[in-house]
Design a binder for these strands. Sequence first.
RNA 1: GUGGGAGUAGCUCAACUGGCAGAGCACCGGACUGUGGCUCCGGACGUUGUGGGUUCGAUUCCCAUCUCCCACCCCA
Length: 426
Amino acid sequence: MIKAVRGTRDLLPPDTALWNFVEAAARDVFRAYNFQEIRTPIFEETQLFSRSVGEETDIVSKEMFTWEDRGRAQSDKGQSLTLRPENTAGVVRAYVEHKLWERGLNKLYYIGPQFRRERPQKGRYRQFYQIGAEVIGPPTAGSESPARDAEIIELLATFLDRLGIAGWNLELNSVGCPNDRASFNEALRKALRPVVSKMCADCQRRAVTNPLRVFDCKVPEDQPIIAKLPRISQFLDEPCRKHFRELQGILNSVGVPFAINDRLVRGLDYYTRTAFEFTHGALGAQNAVLGGGRYDGLSESLGGPSAPGIGFAIGEDRLVMSLKESAEPVLRRPDVYIAPLGPGMNREAARLARELRRHDLVVELGDESFRLKKSFETATRVGAKFTLIVGENEVKADSFAVKNLETGEQVSVRRQELVARIQSDR
RNA sequence: GUGGGAGUAGCUCAACUGGCAGAGCACCGGACUGUGGCUCCGGACGUUGUGGGUUCGAUUCCCAUCUCCCACCCCA
C-alpha cells in the first residue's frame, strides 16, 4: 500500500473544519490591521535561503529539501532549487523583485505549507503549515518604529484570544544590531573559554559553532555557569536599548502581558533587535506555537533597498493542536435528506434538491432504489434535520411528506411552501 | 542525525511459556415491502506494518527495513 511519506499527513474531516476556522479567524484579524495577502512560490532558488536564513543554521545546513533542476539544454547545468523552509525570505524577495514599496504594499500576510527535513515528532512535520505576516518598508515609512513591533505583537495576542486559546505566554528579548551581536559574541567566547571544559558535550560543541545557543542548555549542572555569562542586553547600543524600551512601553500601555527572557535567541541569521515567542503548555517539547522578530538588514542582503521589517510565523499545526484541547470541530449538518421512493423518483428528487440548495439549504440526496427504512437510517446517521419523502403519492398530490427527525413530527407540505417551511423550522 | 517505546479488522484494543487470530464500537442485511434512533437475529470483516530467518508450527523468538509516538538536537 502506498502511504503518505514520512513526516507528511492527510488532514481529514472533521479536522479540516477546524483548520478552516483558524484560517478564517486569521484573515479576519489581518483585515482589521489592514494586512493583505501574498502568495509566493513553494520552491525558490536555493541561494535565497542560504543567503537570508544563514548558511550555518540547522535549517540550511541539514534540513532543506533541495534538488537540482534540469537545465534548458542538455549541456546546461541545472539550477539548485529548494522547497521553502520558511516564508519570510520569499516575501522579502518578492518585495525587492516587484519594488512593492512603490505600490505602498508594506503589510503582507501568507498562509501555506513549508518544508523541513527534520525527524518527525508530535507537532513537528516535514510539511507543516504557517500563518505569517511581515511589515516591511522604507525607513521613512516608519517601518523601523517600535510601534510596528508592538502592533504585530498586539495583533497576535488578539488573534490567540479570539480563538479562545487560554494560557499562552509571551517572551520578549532584543538581540540588538549586527554590531552589538558581534561584540557580544566575542565577549561570550572569551567568557566561555575558561569554563567550557566543565560543561556538557552539547555546550562544548555549541561554544564553537554557535555560542548563543549555550543559553538553550537545559542541563542542571551547567546552569550556574550560564548564569554568570554575559547577556546580550549588556551589549545593546543606545538606539537598540531605546527601541526595546519603547516597545515595552507600548505593550504595557495596550495591556499585553509579556516576560523578558534575555536567553531568547532566534535561530535565523537575519534577525535583529526584537525577538519574541509565544508558547503554550499543552504542546510537549515543541511548545513554541509562534515566533517572530525584526530583520532590518534582510532586504539589503537580498539586493534590495534599505527596508527594515518585522514579522512572525505561527505554527498552524501546533495551533490547531492546542485548540483541539478546548474546541471540537463543528461540521455543518445537512438540513434535509431527500428520500426518492420507487422507480423514476430520482428525477423529481433531483429537481427538488436543486431548488432547496439554491436557497442555501444543505441537502443530502438518497436514491430511488433505497427502501424507505434505509433512507431514514441514512438521514439519521448524517445528522439531517428533516427527511423529505419523494414518492408517487407525493408527486401526484404535489405535496410532500416532511418529517422532523428531532421531534418525529411529520407534515405534508405543498411544493411551493417547501423552502419557506424548512427554512423557518431550521 | 542520536537514544528509547509501539505497530493485530474502518476505530479502540485482546490473544498464557511458540499451538485453529478474537471482542466492543462502526459497517451491511433481516425481523419491519412507505418511516430513523431502542431491541433482537444474521453477515462481511485481516498480507498480524513490510521482507527475510529459526521451527513440525511464528501475532509471539531472531535479523533487517518502514512508519508513528517520546526524548535529544533544533525549530513553527
